[in-house]
Design a protein around this nucleic acid. Sequence first.
RNA 1: GGAGGAGUGACUGAGUGGCCGAAAGUGGCGGUCUUGAAAACCGUUGUCCUUCACGGGACCGUGGGUUCGAAUCCUACCUCCUCCGCCA
Length: 426
Amino acid sequence: MLDIKYVRDHLPEVENAVKNRGSDIDFTGFSEADKKRRQLLAETEDLRHKRNTVSDEIARKKKSGDDAQSEIEDMRKVSDRIKALDKDLSSVQETIDQFALSLPNIPHPDVPVGRDEDENRLEKQVGEKPRFEFEIKSHWEIGENLGILDFTRAAKIAGSRFPLYMKSGARLERALINFMLDIHITEHGYTETLPPFIVNKNSLIGTGQLPKFEEDLFKLEGWDYYLIPTSEVPMANIYGGEVLKEDDLPIKVTAYTPCFRSEAGSYGRDTKGLIRQHQFNKVELVKYTTPENSYQELDALLANAETILQRLDLPYQVVTLCTGDIGFSATKTYDIEVWMPGQDKYREISSCSNCEEFQARRANIRYRRKDQKKPLYVHTLNGSGLAVGRTFAAILENCQQADGTVRIPDALVPYMGGQTVIEHES
RNA sequence: GGAGGAGUGACUGAGUGGCCGAAAGUGGCGGUCUUGAAAACCGUUGUCCUUCACGGGACCGUGGGUUCGAAUCCUACCUCCUCCGCCA
């Protein structure tokens, strides 16, 4: 959420930011409601002041045994008037609140202006793409041939877009989770957490998924609960409503969780394989920082995510998302895209964002500076470190061998109990 | 699921209709004293809205109600705790 005062005072800038994102939001209703609100507020406050003053007088009169009946009559009317105005006020306030919650964050000046992913800015390419002397296969073919992925039976159990890992496949997925967590915890200084996989509406408002993107979520019928679309939601809400100490910042947390997404509107896209699933595993990184350090911390977060790919010897590139492609809550986002030989494409495997105050304002997360008594909003950052299912897919495709087997990257071998190759398992 | 109890400022905790934005203590900050530190003592210490400002207003878990007036009374809800039942 943006500061409503900032929106009021910088309307052209905010309108332009929204336009650059490719959304179309009408600000006239807001301006009117905002004006109306201040008008009503001035009026009710005057009346309240009057009531407070006269009520004191009534108390005094009653104490000294004087008659206060006419004042009481007057105040009865004043109270009714206040009640009526309050009703108007709360409806205007509701309009403003809803509007404020539906406004996206303002992109950082460094973010390229553009319409869609074609205008993202390439930052770098790392690692050597593997060369193959044989006809390469997609990860789903490899996985099914080896008997470690079974989409047919997964569909029987749940439906399309659900994974069923078997045998070494299940172990590899688990190995990846442990491998990623261990690096972030022991080498990058993140605190391990294991949050709820189901959250309430408030948490989703805090991170920005609600109220605008409800159709992307799985909601529990009969409950005000949702399955998390990313562990960013529970993790960025850990300190909701709290005032943190400056000395405790930055707070860096990591967690593995499954993620659940309805993928509404993505019919026909990535229908095969592990790329786009209703349920997938992810190791997530979340930071709470001071405003002056947040961009430095964003670069560090990106580097932390890149480390995983480097250790796995997977080639990747980093892009800065343009204004048309960046997420609702972010001011700036780097995407890491891993090389997928089977698709002859780079595919997103991590998204690292700075949300600045946007989520902190929604979730009311502040910190107190040593030299200032007024608490300030923290900056929140999040990034995948990494999407596990897509990493699994990238390993199958990049490490496939002529005989259909898959070489396990050296760094994962200890996590696989010494296994170096995945061979056909019937 | 049944029966009780509780939610007040960073924390502990007083406050049962007007004198309460709220006692006291702890913690924090500033100071006195001290070579330095501790102790002691003195002072200070919530958030938000509105206004150019002076000022005004709101906030005692949340919403609704009673009242001229609510932290205080009524009501619904939320959260936490204790006991019983069930349960991985």
